[in-house]
Design a binder for these strands. Sequence first.
DNA 1: AATAAAATTGTTAGCGATAACATATATCAC
DNA 2: GTGATATATGTTATCGCTAACAATTTTATT
Lengths: 352, 352
Amino acid sequence: MSQGSGKTPSKRPLTLRDVSEASGVSEMTVSRVLRNRGDVSEATRKKVLEAARELGYVPNKIAGALASSRVNLVAVIIPSMSNMVFPEVMTGISDVLEDTELQPVVGVTNYKPEREEAVLYQMLSWRPSGVIIAGLEHTEAAKAMMGAAGIPIVEIMDTDGEPIDSAVGISHRRAGRKMAQAIIDAGYKRIGFLGTKMPLDHRARKRFEGFTETLAKAGLEVADSEFYSGGSALKKGREMTEAILTRNAEDPLDFLYYSNDMIGAGGLMYCLDNGIDVPGEVGLAGFNGIEFLDGLPRKLATMDACRVEIGRAAAEIIAKRVEEGDEAAGEVITLEPSLEFGETLKRKKKLI
Amino acid sequence: MSQGSGKTPSKRPLTLRDVSEASGVSEMTVSRVLRNRGDVSEATRKKVLEAARELGYVPNKIAGALASSRVNLVAVIIPSMSNMVFPEVMTGISDVLEDTELQPVVGVTNYKPEREEAVLYQMLSWRPSGVIIAGLEHTEAAKAMMGAAGIPIVEIMDTDGEPIDSAVGISHRRAGRKMAQAIIDAGYKRIGFLGTKMPLDHRARKRFEGFTETLAKAGLEVADSEFYSGGSALKKGREMTEAILTRNAEDPLDFLYYSNDMIGAGGLMYCLDNGIDVPGEVGLAGFNGIEFLDGLPRKLATMDACRVEIGRAAAEIIAKRVEEGDEAAGEVITLEPSLEFGETLKRKKKLI
DNA sequence: AATAAAATTGTTAGCGATAACATATATCAC
DNA sequence: GTGATATATGTTATCGCTAACAATTTTATT
């Protein structure tokens, strides 16, 4: 009743031996058939496959991995699953790994370094073939583990720093600078910044640093800022926008730079709801380039973070090194995020 | 240089034996220390821990799992990561499993049954302690595998059907009926439906079935419908809304039921942008209760799908059965989704 | 037909840990 | 101090599979 389709109502879990006995060949041959390795005659292959199917046998990779010391798992360690950016990175990773024997296994750290360390330890204890991990900032212990693991490590999202091994990402400092330059060029002067509380979001922090740095060169600075954590980002975006605009009513802000598109979208909606002229009275820009923006009443200016591409590239590095060995260790790929002006950031006024 | 903090610049991967030698006790004792099992004197415990840390030893769970035939993994198989609903389910699962030894491992099927079967096979080959899988519809082979796996299986999201073992979810038929009733009560008559192409989205299909069924009882039917697949859901929502409203301009629709909140939000924005009175001229409702809605200009009516709660309950079932054995097999938990009227669905006009 | 080369199958010895049992050392009652 | 109970540690035998090599059968070559 409880057993699938097989005839054996046994309790003991099935092993290669069962299939071997059922098909009258050695365990080794069964193993070969099931893995498509080595030469096996068509006749026995069919016999074995039939028996395995009949019994409902599922190979035990635990044993297989131990015996062969090959584990087709790639550890993917990311801070969060719920913010729309990592799912896209995952898409890129999955796309590439689907064509290989490798399989991604995801761990989530919630932006906590100590959690990252624990997750990494857990993951490494399964002896994966490679690690893809977000960010360049890790605890010392985590760095040590990755350094000693003897497998390809790819740090993603960010290339502003020293990778342990390989890295794929964008320069968030540069992204911040680039956006600042576009804002300056468009003639905005009184600029507000809205973002997450950043102690642990290093990439947001770096963007902010690049941003202020370029403003400074133009003799400008961030006039005011607003931070949040948790909650509905869209709503927070609204609320923060209202707060920051109200607070600066006397000497009004003319641009708001958001650390992500979701709060930016909230801000945009607030402005539209309140009859604020965007981008004339106030310009807006976010960060990430999420697909979502396409549906907004007005297209928010943003900078694409190349998420899918980062995932793809990272997975390709792992796949290649698993396949061909570690000659290419230490590769760093810096992608160039593209600025999308959308309809909330004026174009450069004029040259000269 | 490449080795973390250890002194051994070796190439060979570390094993218990290395720690054993470094600390001068048997492998078994090291194993006991590292797992906090059995009595070990404080002195040796410290010695061993020190040696392990020094070497940068990470236990090999592959070997451990094989020897103990205990694998602290829970396979979680879901159709998609990118639609905001499963990340929340994952949150619920993680919350619960964090307090146990169990660890979730996610597989994504992209709504393809054959992909689901393959993912399941992969997962089962790691001999997880349990499976949490979305939906009640699976290939015959998949059902057979789960039936024969001898581990707790929890099918989530949906309870309209026959579970293999346990199930946690809501009745989507009932959710559809409930929404239909609210719409009828509010006095809407010309109702449009907008959703994904549904051949494989069984839950959307069931909601639709329940919906039409209840309409039928009130002598109503879905006046027109519109389907999409892929792309920015928000944008699609806009486009479809425009299309369906335009198409029915002569005999205008007065309600639009969307199969998810994201396209509903798009529709809402379209209506607001075009000066359509919501909910007077046209009422709107979505499905899911995503947090996101809080930030919209007007709160969309929706029905909460209890996502986090489903995740929690499913994880609890697994955890309990891993802990206490399989007496409680076959448990089915049906949660009751709550209708949220928001500001896009008129309340019941009056009784009688 | 005889021998070499290729294709197919089998045998043996681990992979690195843990369960179960065995042994040694410490603690205790009397 | 002696035997007994508890605490700490060590030994041995797997766990289910695969690498590496051995043995056998088939096919090709001359």
